[in-house]
Amino acid sequence: MHPEPHEHGPDEAPHSHPDPGVDPHAPLPAAPRALRIGIGGPVGSGKTALVAALCRALGAELRLAVVTNDIYTTEDADFLLRNGVLPAERIRAVETGCCPHTAIRDDISANLDAVEDLEAALGPLELVLVESGGDNLTATFSKGLIDRQIFVVDVAGGDKVPRKGGPGVTTADLLVINKTDLAPLVGADLAVMDRDARARRGDLPTVFLSLVQDRAAAPVADWIRALVAARVPAP
């Protein structure tokens, strides 16, 4: 579950390892409380597109809703609605007071209220996706807010991103390396990213994704399906 013990070379970039105190296999909530999955990552890495793809892929089989911490306009809502992604009443936007980071980690009140309000308005849900506002590599979700988190980086951000590490890359339950179709254009080496991600993340999974080629985000949707299936049934 943690990286193989290894020596640190003098020319090696400074990096971090998964916190041994964090159990990546903390128990999932018993149904009927919705499974909450946080989706974080830097600005422009494709979080919103991933959320839209997941809604398309899972909307017909799971009762789901979305809380977004991003700046969310009625145009965005109309876009999602027009594309048959999710009706407006299943999406809540929370204001983060210019602190996207704070809202998902240090003070999760507004997000918890939004999840509670969605459940109150829509009845029991199976899955709530919580999308963070665009932030930097140090942004992670509080475990008081979500059960599992996905961190999204993209190849256009440079193939050194996994090597840089940071809590998002290192500890997320699933790392998504997005926009692989752009790799040849930006000179990103996917093999290097894969190797660095493994070194940072040990046994934690990493998937490569191109929403241009895979509009349903199949590997991510499958990962979520497995989590939902693994939940303890309600007593």
């Binding site: 983060t96 007071g97 809202a103 240090d106 003070d107 009140s109 507004a110």
Partner: peptide
């Protein structure tokens, strides 16, 4: 820093 939602207001 009390987590009581104040930062968003």
């Amino acid at each position: 820093r009390l987590p009581a939602g104040g930062h968003a207001h």
